[in-house]
């Protein structure tokens, strides 16, 4: 049994390392003297979307265009550009599409409020339904109350008797 688990662990390790190797993009060429600039560069290339291979950031993509955009980001960061300046540069050329955090505006509003709205509607539906299912407390008329008291007293009498 321990052999089995050793094997499975080894298999998992191989599986995961192979995945990360196949996705690794060579970032060694980007050298920084300033660690804060390096951090900004890494943050940016993970947030900017490759226009060519649409579900990858430019950090993940092997496409030549992604490399060009990484080069451009590197150049701008080295020249002291702020995060917003680099993002604006990319968005001006490739549209809001180029940034994984689109700005809040009319064409992107569904992206921002959509999930919240769905949760809100779900919560309202649940609350309304639960309230409807709660049994209403029976309203007794005076006559019914007397009857109830009478019944209860006879029951008690029987138990004692």
């Amino acid at each position: 049994m321990t052999r089995f688990w050793e094997l499975m662990t080894a298999l998992l390790v191989v599986l995961f390392t192979s995945i990360s190797v196949s996705h690794a993009v060579n970032l060694e060429t980007y050298q920084f003297d300033d660690p804060s600039k390096e951090a900004l560069f890494r943050e940016l290339i993970n947030e900017l979307r490759c226009p060519k291979c649409q579900n990858q950031s430019i950090a993940d993509s092997d496409a030549p265009l992604a490399k060009d955009l990484r080069d451009r980001t590197y150049l701008m960061v080295q020249q002291g550009a702020t995060k917003q300046e680099v993002v604006d540069y990319m968005v001006a050329r490739y549209g809001d599409f180029a940034h994984y955090r689109p700005p809040v505006k009319l064409s992107t509003i569904v992206l921002w409020v959509g999930p919240g709205l769905v949760i809100l509607i779900g919560a309202i539906v649940i609350i309304v339904r639960v309230r409807q299912q709660q049994p209403h407390e029976a309203e007794l008329s005076d006559q019914e109350r007397e009857q109830l008291a009478a019944l209860q007293s006879t029951k008690q009498d029987k138990q004692h008797g």
């Binding site: 226009p51 060519k52 030549p64 265009l65 060009d68 955009l69 050329r93 490739y94």
Partner: peptide
Amino acid sequence: ERGLVAIDFGVYG
């Protein structure tokens, strides 16, 4: 040659 102007045009292919 280096595709720099193409980036300014937003060319991605």
